[in-house]
Design a binder for these strands. Structure first.
Length: 503
RNA sequence: GCGCCCGUAGCUCAGUGGACAGAGCGGCGGACUUCUAAUCCGCGGGUCGGAGGUUCGAAUCCUCCCGGGCGCACCA
């Protein structure tokens, strides 16, 4: 088993007879790991918590690698592990290498993550970039947990908005101003200079921006293709005719009103295309369809899940991840964004300003339920104090140490006691499996950068206090550095940030 | 009116039942004959929006209230 902490927890759990989770106490006086299992068990067993804790403690004392056990406070069980146990933990990280902390999924699924999916009427904006930064990190975290993940971009290539877009480009080509309700902005002139339908050109540009942002899509799907399949999907759904239109009875599946699939003029609605789209995705063998949508789309959740149910799947087969919106300010003043007016901040400009690493870190390091505010004027300035550099610097420092060691062998046999800074760092590294598992289960990748800061913090402190190359503990410290490098590189990869060898 | 999300340090935010609530930034003061000072150490700073409730224990769960964001189309 590649997770020493999980193994210890399960050993303690076997003694207690229930599932046990170990946490790391904030106060060093409370040992290396602690559990409140006795407090929870006391009521069930109808006995005093401390008595229950004492009984479990007797068993824990005999476990391999446990150096001490204490019953504290109302009935906490505080466990101190031996230095050797920690050394074995470092060995476990080195053995697992880049797979350390992965594979937490109990039942691996085939998952499709559909994200960004902005209509190709203009370049990718910073607002859409949050969708991508979040969605791509969710995809990475799911893949690391053991799921098979595909990323898809679904775009509208027909309909009123797209016609307005095409007309705007056509107007510029004729040397006229785009229509009042059309699209404006410098990028229109660039598209007008190219031949043919501007939509494929716009898409190519969008793809290039997203690749630069380190998001790669496996598939690109067009809405018009599914509009043609609505007729095939209708018989599979719960529908009825009213006012000349075809409706889906979504209220029978948890929605607050029924939805039109085919308009009275015979044209399918956007929702109608969605139905055909979901049908094909589910038929294509996906166990789970993840949609990454902004908070302004939260009303869609129940209707999309209603479609899943009509198609004979559990509603959880369609999982909609809602993230709160990005608010842009300029010198403290809110700026309303509208692609049509051309009053937006494009991802490429943002990346020119602060770089891909700082941008990804900034957009994914807050909880997705939290609205983000970005002051465009301060963004570049703030980029210098972005914690991403703190974490990357730790990685580069380790690379420097390893270069300096010139290939000396690492080892996990100890020559003396571990220092506090070494113990703290090892325990921190051993948290990765839990951090990665939680990020995947909750679809909450922001826990990863938070954890990465802690790792860098513990490493920088260790570095400051202890010499690696030439020390008594050189072999172990080289192993510890290598393990730390593996963990930091993994964290950064999970959020699409590079791990530099030098800075 | 109905629905979803959010109110934690001066600012930006972690913390989805456990031991005195944390980090980064900003402020003040220290540390480079050294494997990278993009670092480290110290100081200051909080009625966890408010009121009830559940619990041995609540920032965390429930109810109500206040404040903010978003949404309620035969638009996409």
């Amino acid at each position: 088993m590649g997770d020493p902490v999980a193994r210890l927890a399960s050993d303690v759990g076997a003694l207690a007879g229930v599932h046990v989770e170990l946490e790391r106490p904030a106060d060093a006086a409370h040992g290396d790991y602690a559990t409140s299992v006795a407090l929870r068990l006391a009521g069930e067993w109808r006995r005093q918590p401390r008595e229950v804790a004492g009984e479990i403690a007797d068993g824990v004392r005999g476990l391999d690698g446990v150096a001490g056990v204490e019953v504290a406070g109302p009935g906490f069980l505080n466990v101190t592990v031996a230095d050797d146990w920690l050394a074995v933990g470092v060995a476990a990280i080195l053995d697992a290498g880049s797979s350390f902390g992965g594979g937490s999924a109990r039942a691996p699924e085939r998952v499709q993550v559909e994200m960004v999916s902005a209509n190709p009427t203009g370049p990718i904006t910073v607002a859409a970039a949050r969708n991508g930064a979040y969605g791509d990190s969710v995809a990475r975290v799911l893949a690391f947990a053991g799921h098979t993940v595909e990323r898809e971009y679904y775009y509208n290539d027909a309909g009123a908005q797209m016609e307005r877009f095409r007309e705007s480009v056509a107007a510029v080509r004729r040397g006229e101003e785009p229509p009042e309700d059309g699209y404006h902005g410098a990028y229109l002139a660039e598209l007008a200079a190219l031949d043919g339908d501007p939509v494929p050109h716009m898409l190519a540009r969008i793809e290039a921006s997203l690749e630069r942002f380190r998001i790669h899509f496996d598939t690109w799907e067009r809405q018009s293709e599914f509009e043609a399949e609505v007729g095939e999907a209708l018989p599979l759904l719960d529908t009825y005719e009213a006012d000349g239109a075809t409706w889906a009875r979504t209220t029978a599946y948890g929605d607050d009103k029924d939805r039109v699939l085919v308009r009275s003029n015979g044209e399918p609605t956007y929702f109608g295309a969605d139905a055909a789209y979901i049908r094909r995705k589910l038929a294509g063998g996906f166990d789970r369809l993840v949609y990454v949508l902004g908070a302004d789309h939260h009303g869609y959740v129940s209707r999309l899940q209603a479609l899943a149910e009509m198609l004979g799947r559990p509603r959880e087969a369609v999982e909609v991840l809602i993230y709160q919106l990005v608010h842009l300010t300029r010198g403290g003043e809110a700026t309303k964004m509208s692609k049509r007016r051309g009053d937006v901040v494009f991802l490429d400009d943002f990346l020119d300003e602060i770089g891909v690493d700082a941008a990804r870190w900034h957009l994914v390091s807050r909880g997705h339920d939290q609205a983000i505010e970005i002051d465009v004027d301060l963004a570049a300035e703030k980029a210098n104090t972005n914690p991403v550099y703190y974490v990357q610097y730790a990685h580069a420092r380790i690379a420097g140490i390893l270069r300096h060691a010139e290939g000396a062998d690492p080892g996990t046999v100890l020559r003396g006691d571990l220092a506090d800074e070494e113990r703290d760092l090892v325990k921190r590294l051993l948290e990765l499996p839990e951090v990665a598992a939680v990020a995947a289960e909750r679809r909450a990748p922001h826990g990863v950068p938070t954890y990465a800061i802690r790792v860098a913090d513990d490493f920088h402190r260790f570095y400051h206090h202890h010499k690696v190359v030439g020390s008594e503990q050189q072999a172990f410290r080289l192993a510890l550095c290598t393990a730390t490098k593996v963990v930091i590189a993994r964290c950064l990869d999970l959020i699409g940030v590079e791990a530099p060898e030098r800075m």
